[in-house]
Every structure is written in structure tokens, then in C-alpha cells.
């Protein structure tokens, strides 16, 4: 059978989502942002909520997310995406609002905003891309950098005495009563991508059902910042990031009724 006989519209099994704008992304080869953008566009497309979805873009590499996914976007100041999302969802409670943040954005400068937005149980989805460094600015150490990990500001590896410990922000968020669904996923293999897509879909469904904050961390690679090949970075992530940032659901429940007694 010839290849031309296989490439026919009726045999199509996988194609680019129509929500992804037909342009070449500025991300480095092999960047996890591209995969998460694709998952988001597929989920929004499949749920038919394109007209109702508002994304809050962070500061970081994903600042240009509004160039790639065909929904409404609002850009936020560094770390303030959950605060902007709070304002948007309170004024437009029928819209589906998600904040898309990296680890330098969410776990460092935006710690106060994310903790309090999740504690208030704002009806938003938070997508948290954790690659362990500040990718856009040149691979500096972030709060999530592993102990001993080499970055451009810790050339001899992160030293606990000098730089402190890496922060498991998702575990912190899972303790807050305002959150309904807290999970940690990854996107380095096809199985992981499909699992991550199910998690993101569930997070969006929770927002439609007004269950409170849903928080999806995606353990990601930044091969340019880590100074590795894309495939090598995926392997490094599996060997070094996953033992410290174990994958799986941390919380899956309704927003708790907390009494004063």
C-alpha cells in the first residue's frame, strides 16, 4: 500500500487543534510549554468553551501565550496572575478563567497571590509549569531548583546553607481548604501527555461546576536553561525531578465547609 493511499482525510487520527493559531511558537526546540499549550487548546476545543474562556498570561517565556491560543487573554504583572484572575472571575462569574504561570512567577514573586487566591477558593484553574529555573532570563536559580542543581547563578550547584531548600509549592497549596483539585503531572511521554490532558480537563470541569480553585502543576523541562538536549533533559527530569516532585493527585474533593468551631 502506498503512503498516498493512507494520507486521506477519512484516515486522519491526529491533527493540530483548530484553537492553536497557525504560527511558529517562539519556544526553544523541545520546550514543554508547547505541549501544555497544545493540551489547553485541545481541552478548550473539546469542551466547547472557546467563547467563555479567559486566560491570564504570566511574565516568563509563556508571556506570548496570547499569540498561540485563540481565546481571550489578559497579561498580568509578574506573579500577579491569580490576583488578575480573581478580578476577572468575580466580575464575570460565568466565564472560565485560568492563570498560566511558571515557577519563577508563581513560586517566587507571586507566592502571596497564589496562596491567598487558593485559600479564598477563587473559582479558577491554575496551570503551574515547574521547570526548576528561571527559563526566560537565562536559567537562574528559582525557589524550585533542586539541591545541587547547576544553574547560571549556582554554578557549583544549589547549596542549602547559602540558598535554602527547594519549595514544594503544590504540597502547600493542597493543604488549603479553598482548593478542590490539586495534582502534579508531566508531559515527557505520550502516556504522560494523555494523563495530563485528563487532569486539565477535570480542572476546567471543576471550574464550570464552581468547585473552587483547581491547581495543575506540570513538571517540565527547560533544556536550553539546563544546557541539555531535549531528549536528555526529559531523561534528567525523570531521574532527578520526579523523586523530589512525585507525580499524582494530591487532592480531589469539593471545597470544604470550614466552621468556626
Amino acid at each position: 500500500m502506498d503512503i498516498k493511499d493512507i494520507i486521506k482525510p477519512e484516515n486522519l487520527v491526529y491533527k493540530k487543534s483548530e484553537l492553536l493559531i497557525d504560527t511558529i511558537m517562539h519556544y526553544c526546540p523541545g520546550c514543554s510549554h508547547g505541549v501544555v499549550h497544545k493540551i489547553l487548546s485541545e481541552v478548550i476545543d473539546e469542551m466547547g468553551i472557546q467563547e467563555k474562556t479567559i486566560g491570564i498570561a504570566p511574565v516568563g517565556c509563556a508571556v506570548f501565550a496570547y499569540n498561540y491560543i485563540d481565546i481571550d487573554w489578559q497579561e498580568a504583572a509578574h506573579g500577579r496572575a491569580p490576583a488578575v484572575a480573581t478580578g476577572v472571575v468575580r466580575l464575570n462569574p460565568d466565564n472560565i478563567v485560568f492563570a498560566y504561570q511558571g515557577d519563577g512567577d508563581l513560586a517566587s514573586i507571586g507566592t502571596a497571590e497564589i496562596i491567598h487566591a487558593c485559600n479564598r477558593g477563587e473559582n479558577i484553574v491554575v496551570i503551574f509549569i515547574n521547570n526548576g529555573i528561571y527559563g526566560m532570563t537565562g536559567g537562574q536559580m528559582a525557589p524550585t531548583t533542586l539541591v545541587g542543581q547547576v544553574t547560571s547563578t549556582t554554578p557549583a550547584g544549589r547549596n542549602v546553607d547559602l540558598n535554602g531548600y527547594p519549595m514544594k509549592i503544590t504540597e502547600l497549596i493542597a493543604q488549603l481548604p479553598g482548593t478542590s483539585y490539586v495534582t502534579r503531572q508531566s508531559v515527557q511521554t505520550a502516556a504522560a501527555v494523555r494523563k495530563c490532558k485528563r487532569s486539565i480537563k477535570k480542572a476546567f470541569q471543576n471550574v464550570i461546576d464552581k468547585k473552587g480553585t483547581s491547581f495543575v502543576e506540570v513538571v517540565s523541562t527547560c533544556n536550553a536553561g539546563w544546557k541539555m538536549t531535549p531528549v536528555g533533559a526529559n531523561k534528567w527530569m525523570e531521574e532527578n525531578m520526579f523523586p523530589f516532585y512525585p507525580l499524582g493527585d494530591m487532592k480531589d474533593s469539593d471545597k470544604k465547609e470550614v466552621s468556626n468551631n
Binding site: 484516515n11 487520527v13 491533527k15 511558529i24 508547547g34 511521554t189 505520550a190
Partner: peptide
């Protein structure tokens, strides 16, 4: 599914 730039289209028969 894993392509970060979504530049692959797949057909099956």
C-alpha cells in the same frame, strides 16, 4: 501527542 510544536499530522488505515 508529544510534539511541542504540533507539526505532525497522523493518518491510520
Amino acid at each position: 501527542v508529544v510534539c511541542p510544536d504540533t507539526c505532525l499530522t497522523i493518518y491510520r488505515v
